[in-house]
């Protein structure tokens, strides 16, 4: 089996939005919507500050609440890789998955169905990195298979301190942020 994951080095990330715009062109994300985004988290008071910049998106959780709450099975886990996807013509637009996602990663596509990051599964299946990873000028993003101990993502996670978003929500996110 394989488990796709993303490892993002917040030390290198400069928050330039390249991942966001690459996703938009690659996937034709409609105007006014975004599947990925930049978050800046600042702590402290001037001038003693810390800032973490993160490129965020669907975490493709191991325990995806959006999948378990979907009444029609439109939201599902795609194997191999454990990527969480939405089948457009099964989605009824009940928005339960939007409410179920603690990361607010989903949105309702103007055509009515729930939409979100797909890990660029169409690219991954052709052996390419997701669009956001492949364009990042700071090389802060890495995509790979967690189940493969030799993969870059596994090695990075073994060698550097990291965190995931809202682990307390119990969703077991698969996007990790190196600190």
């Amino acid at each position: 089996m394989s488990r796709f994951a993303m490892v993002i080095d917040t030390r290198r990330c400069v928050g330039c939005y390249d991942c966001v715009v690459a996703c938009k062109t690659e996937n034709g994300v409609p105007e006014g919507y975004s599947r990925d985004w930049i978050t800046e988290e600042v702590h402290g008071a001037f001038p003693t500050l810390q800032m973490e910049i993160r490129s965020e998106r669907c975490n493709h959780c191991d325990n995806p609440p959006c999948v378990s709450c979907c009444p029609t099975g439109a939201s599902h886990v795609h194997e191999p890789g454990g990527v969480v996807l939405v089948t457009h013509d099964k989605c009824i637009g009940c928005k339960a998955c939007l409410a179920a996602c603690p990361y607010n990663a989903r949105f309702i596509h103007p055509d009515g169905y729930a939409d979100k990051c797909t890990f660029c599964i169409h690219r991954v299946e052709r052996g390419l990195d997701p669009a956001c990873v492949s364009v990042c000028p700071t090389h802060c993003m890495h995509f790979g298979d967690l189940d493969d101990p030799q993969s870059e993502v596994s090695q990075l996670l073994n060698s550097r301190p990291h965190h995931a978003l809202l682990p307390e929500a119990g969703t077991k996110p698969c996007i990790f942020y190196l600190t």
């Binding site: 080095d9 030390r11 290198r12 990330c13 400069v14 928050g15 600042v42 001037f46 001038p47 500050l49 810390q50 800032m51 973490e52 910049i53 000028p137 700071t138 090389h139 802060c140």
Partner: peptide
């Protein structure tokens, strides 16, 4: 790209700026 690489390699960065810029972080 080079800046990110340098940061990744652990270069020591000194930033003088009235604003806490991204580089300052």
């Amino acid at each position: 790209q080079e800046f990110a690489a340098a940061v990744g390699k652990g270069a020591s960065i000194i930033v003088a700026d009235p604003r806490f810029s991204v580089a300052a972080s």
